[in-house]
Structures are given as C-alpha cells and as structure tokens.
C-alpha cells in the first residue's frame, strides 16, 4: 500500500503531466468544473433554488472553458509558439532544426525520458523508423541520457502558458457567456427569473 502510494507520487507519468501546462491546466479546470458546483451545493446558507442555479452556472462555465481550451487554444498556441521560435525569435538555435513541429518534438522527448531498453524497443516499431533524422536516432539508441533540447520544450510551454491565459481568462469566458444563458434556459433554470420579471412588469403597468 505504502509502496504503491510512493510509486504514484514519484511516477514519471504524473511528472510529465505536471510539467505540461496544457495537461495540468486541463485537469485542474476539470476538477473545478466538479468541485466548485459541489461546494456551492453543500452550502447551507443559500436557498435551494439559488444554489442549484449558481452550481449549474459554474459547472457550465467551467465545462465550456475546458472545451474551448482543448479544442482551440491548445493546438493554435502550441504549434504557433514552436513556429514563432523556430522561424523568427530563435532561428539561430540549432535544436529547432531537428524537429518539424511541436508534436514531433514532444514524441522525441517522450522517448528520451524512457529507459534505454524501453527506448530501443519502441524505436524498433514501424511508425518510429523514419520519424527522426539519423543523428537523433543514433542519439536515442546509443546514449543513456539523450539530449532533451529544453529550449524547444520551453518555447512550447511558453506558448501554452500565453494560450492558457488568453484562452481561459479572455476567450473562453466570452464563449461561455454566449452558451451559459441559453443552456440555463434550456435546462429550465432561467424560467422562474423570467416569470418574476414579467410579474414585476405587470405590477408596474397597473401602478
């Protein structure tokens, strides 16, 4: 039991998730989508109807943000930052010349993080045969600790952070504002509010 927990806490898979901005932000947003509504529903100081409305609104907001983030922000900013660094800002850096795209580099990095035996076995598979240049293939096969080209990883992560900030703080809320109100109406959460507004209007006319 204890060794299982230790293995989980020191696992390289979890470490690669925690080192990746997109993976960690996606996981965290998913947790928010579940955790925040749960906290609202547990609160005893708010009346039942308001709780349900606020919890549903928070869930829809976070879920829309997550969907927008995964569908639009990740692909655009990840590849955009790689291309910007390779062709403009860091065009003198030789590390970038070994890779054609962000995904190409990330596949290399995944292999470079493996043990030498696992790496050699994986490189033997058909899909990896022509994936990398001869120099990179040799590096992966012969070195215990191949070069990881951290500057390439950093450029991708920089793009991911900028994309996460712009996406989750500016773009996704706009999309969610467009979706949340119709969705709340669809699920019947904004019906009562409309009825109340209608009642108030009729009273005003009589007065």
């Amino acid at each position: 039991m204890v060794s299982g927990i230790t293995n989980f806490l020191t696992s390289s898979t979890l470490s690669s998730i925690s080192q990746s901005t997109t993976a960690s932000v996606s996981l965290e947003t998913g947790m928010k989508a579940l955790g925040r509504p749960a906290f609202i529903l547990v609160d005893n100081d708010i009346d039942r109807q308001t709780k349900r409305y606020a919890a549903m609104k928070e869930f829809l907001y976070q879920a829309t943000c997550l969907a927008t983030y995964m569908a639009i922000v990740i692909p655009i900013f990840k590849n955009g930052a790689f291309k910007l660094a390779k062709n403009n800002l860091l065009k003198d850096e030789k590390a970038f010349q070994n890779f054609s795209s962000a995904n190409h580099y990330l596949k290399y990095r995944k292999l470079a993080s493996m043990s030498k035996n696992d790496r050699t076995a994986t490189l033997g598979k058909d899909k990896y045969k022509n994936m990398f240049s001869e120099k990179i293939q040799n590096d992966l096969k012969n070195n215990d600790k191949p070069e990881k080209y951290n500057i390439v990883k950093g450029a991708i992560e920089f793009g991911n952070i900028v994309g996460s900030v712009l996406g989750l703080a500016i773009f996704a809320p706009q999309v969610s504002h467009l979706i949340v109100h119709p969705a709340l109406k669809f699920f019947g959460f904004e019906k009562e509010a409309d009825e109340k507004a209608a009642q108030t209007k009729s009273v005003d006319i009589k007065a």
């Binding site: 080192q19 990746s20 901005t21 660094a85 800002l89 860091l90 850096e93 990881k148 080209y149 951290n150 500057i151 390439v152 990883k153 950093g154 450029a155 992560e157 920089f158 952070i161």
Partner: peptide, 11 residues
C-alpha cells in the same frame, strides 16, 4: 531564450 530555457528545465 532565457525564459524558454528556464521553462524547459523546470515548468
């Protein structure tokens, strides 16, 4: 370049 190196080493 410095930001990229730092983020690549430890994000």
């Amino acid at each position: 370049r410095n930001i990229c190196i730092k983020l690549g080493e430890n994000n």
